[in-house]
Amino acid sequence: MLELRLVQGSLLKKVLDAIKDLVTDANFDCSESGFSLQAMDSSHVALVALLLRSDGFEHYRCDRNLSMGMNLTNMSKMLKCAGNDDIITIKADDGGDSVTFMFESPSQDKVSDFEMKLMDIDSEHLGIPETEYHAIVKMPSAEFARICRDLSTIGDTVVISVSKDGVKFSTSGDIGSANVVCRQNNSVDNKDNETVIEMNEPVSLTFALRYLNSFTKATTLSNTVTLSMSKELPVVVEYKIAEIGHIRFYLAPKIED
């Protein structure tokens, strides 16, 4: 038996909006520690890892570990039927072939339940080791989204370079080239507006912009985003989800022949 009650149901709606275009089908894993998902995009270039910790739910009952295969397009259709202020409860029976999403309006005067069929998904679970990164950049998520969107009008790839001077995003295409440099700044008034660079050594990596643009659909989940980079390793683009968890996107760098 599984029963997870999330008071801020809009978070789940936003999570689905953030990943449904990147991943078609995924297994949601439920355990004592939380509700999680790990999935690759269809071309196996990017990986998304979601964690909603159990202590972030108002009520969290998970009698035994459960993996539920869901089509994210269908799940998103159902969650779109929940109001932004609704409380969402996810319910499933052990060994059942469906999951129920229950939506309650804040004043409890409207209760809906939507039952969705589960599917068998054969997915590979990858072990992601804890890594010391060469550089970690924390910046406003809207700024990162803006840069990715702007640069993708010029080129297909972006070189992200972190040095002591700041973080530089560069692209080039048929019509020309562009560079955007963000320097470290400290905002006294609002930590969310800060760009903070922690660098052990300079790092420069090339990525396909269309994936980064897809990741920025998570911008509504958090005011800040963190980019963690090491030489020749995937970048981690992380959005914290309020007090409850995170969504991390891993993207393999492009490597020169």
């Binding site: 196996h44 270039v45 590979e124 990858l126 072990g127 080791p129 995937p234 492009k254 020169e256 022949d257």
Partner: peptide
């Protein structure tokens, strides 16, 4: 030109 590696090649499966 540049090559796009699979994300799975960076992590351990299982």
């Amino acid at each position: 030109s540049s090559q796009q590696r699979s994300i799975a090649s960076f992590f351990e499966s299982g």
